[in-house]
Each structure stands twice: as C-alpha cells, then as structure tokens.
Amino acid sequence: MTTPRRRSQQDLSVHKRQVENLQRRLLLKEMLSLGALGMLAGCDLQDGDAVDKVLWTMSRWNDRVQAKLFSRTRLAPTYEASRITRPFPFNAFYPEYDAPDIDGAAFRLQLSGKIDDKRAWTLADLRALPQSGQITRHICIEGWSAIGEWRGVAFRTFLERIGADMTARYVGFKCADKYYSSLDMETAMHPQTLLALDFGADPLPAEYGFPLKLRVPTKLGFKNPKHIAEIFVTNDYPGGYWEDQGYNWFSGV
C-alpha cells in the first residue's frame, strides 16, 4: 500500500520541479520584456525612429481632441490681487541677462499674411486701443504655476482692427529673441487672449517680454510668446520653437 503512494509523491515532486522551472523561465522572460521597455526610454521625439513616429501621431491626435474640448466662452479662473505670485518667475530658453534690450520708441509691430491692413504699429498706437486687464494663472509645461497680472488689448479687438482673416487657421508670432510660436484661430479669438503691454501697473519689464507679450490663460506658458516683433495670419502650420522639437502644439489647459 505504501509503494504506490510514495510513487505518486515522487511524480508530484518531479512535476512540481518542472512547473517551478517553467515559472522561473517565464519570470526571466518577463524581466527581459521590462528591459525592452527600458530600450524605449531612448525614444524622445528627436531621432525619427518608429516609436517616435507613433508619439508624433499621438501628439497630432491630442491636438484634435484638445481643439474639441476647447470652449470659446469658458473663462480661465481669475484671482484677487493678493494671490499674485511675487516675485513672478522668469522663464525662457536663455538666462535672464540675455533677455533682449528693445527701444520702445523705435519699436514697430510688423504684420503679414492674411491681414487687410498691414501697417506697422507703434506702442502708442496700441495704447490708444481699449485696454483691459486680468489676473490669471500662468501654467508651465514643467508643472509649476504662478499667478500674474497683465494689461493690454483684447487680441480679438486687435485682429478685428487690422482686418485679419478670421477664417484662417493659425495666428503666428515671431519674436525679437528668435522665439516663435503659433495659436489656433479659436484660441486667438478667446475673450481672455490678451496682447499685453503691462505687467501689473507698469509696462512689461524686459524679463517678462517688453514691449509686447501675448497672454493666453487657456494655454501652457510656452504658448505665451514674449518680445513679439511680428504677427501673421496663415493657413500653413507655423509650428513653434518648442513645438518643432516635440512639445504638443495645441497645449491647451
């Protein structure tokens, strides 16, 4: 009676060992596939391999989803003056001392593209338009945010005044610091999109974009170009300094 029982126990232990070996092999396989994931870490939108193509495609898909989510009437939250972040952080692709030094008296804002009246604008011309202000949160793609106060011309008012083609797809910006960026027309016409001349009560200081900055509280910070030198309206995708390197173009908040 004991022999068959011992035999079955032996069989069981052999099977058990085989199963355990199989499990170890599978665990090893699992770890190798995690290693393969580690190889994906090299995919960074910079070298055009197959994974990068997928990431770029997903980013274009996210542009479309965000355009659908965007509401022309939904306003970004506004804050009391007591909530303003002091000091407001400086942020650019260069150190603060490299911020361009621009002569306000000689400044002329250039216009091009699908615009009826391409006459250049002085700062005095811009200050003669109706001014409005906002205290809103600037949200950086890096994750930090800061509340600031900007004053200037509602961008929609400006676009109407210059006879911009509002049916065009993009508004592009070229800046004195070689920065460039672009917006969808829907966002350009949003009631809080502001062609800012002032930061707080004073003209924009150099570090915050003198003489002109676009304040877009419905976009991430890098979609708020500073030191604007030229504005153009176009149907051809203008891209942007960061956008061309891989930041999502729409980047709405």
Binding site: L40, A41, G42, C43, D44, L45, Q46, V54, L55, W56, M58, S59, N62, C140, I141, E142, G143, W144, W242, Q245, G246, Y247, N248
Partner: peptide, 29 residues
C-alpha cells in the same frame, strides 16, 4: 523632475522620454 514638489528627484535611468518634451509625449500617448 522638471519641477519637483518635494526635496528629491527621480534618477534619470528610471524615467521615460529622454527630455521633458519626450516625457510629456509619452505621458499623453
């Protein structure tokens, strides 16, 4: 890591994307 909430960052070898733009693209894909 681009803007830490606490007094530490994650080691680069444990992160995906290579740079901030790559990491954001991975996250939103």
């Amino acid at each position: 890591n681009a803007s830490p909430l606490f007094g530490f960052t994650f080691p680069a070898w444990a992160t995906l994307g290579g740079w901030l733009g790559g990491a954001v693209a991975w996250h939103f894909a």
